[in-house]
Simulated assay, not measured.
Amino acid sequence: MKENKVELAFIGYLARYVRLESVKLKKKYQEVKYRKLLILDAPRNNGDSEGKKEVIDSITYSCLSL
């Protein structure tokens, strides 16, 4: 009987943990998605190749920091 209560408590803990982690992951994904949209909406620099490199670097960095 005691083992059953311990198992149920542990399963409840795991369920809460998984739910909270999934909410955190969803928020992080939405934040990254929003940043990418802002980067893509940024005005282009006419003929400025260094500006293009910065945009590519920032997209790459945001993907790697996941």
Rank of each mutant, 00 (worst) to 15 (best):
K52H: 09
K24C: 07
K36V: 09
V18D: 01
A9G: 05
A42C: 14
S58E: 11
L64V: 06
E54Q: 14
K24E: 04
P43N: 02
R19H: 10
S58I: 06
R44H: 12
K5T: 09
I56H: 05
G47S: 01
E50K: 04
K5Y: 10
K24Y: 05
L25Q: 07
S65Q: 07
A15T: 06
K2Y: 11
D57K: 10
E21A: 04
E7T: 13
I59Q: 00
E7V: 10
E54N: 14
A15K: 05
L25T: 06
Y34T: 09
G12F: 00
E21K: 00
Y61Q: 10
Q30F: 10
L66C: 08
D48S: 02
V55C: 06
D41G: 08
E50W: 06
E3L: 07
V32F: 07
I11P: 01
S58K: 03
K27A: 11
L25A: 15
G51C: 02
Q30P: 01
S65R: 05
L14T: 02
A42Q: 09
I56Q: 09
V18F: 01
S49P: 07
I39F: 01
V18Q: 01
I39R: 00
N46P: 14
L37D: 07
A42T: 05
S62A: 08
M1Y: 11
K52F: 09
G12W: 00
I59M: 04
E54A: 15
Y17A: 00
Q30S: 08
L38W: 04
S49N: 09
K27E: 12
Y13C: 03
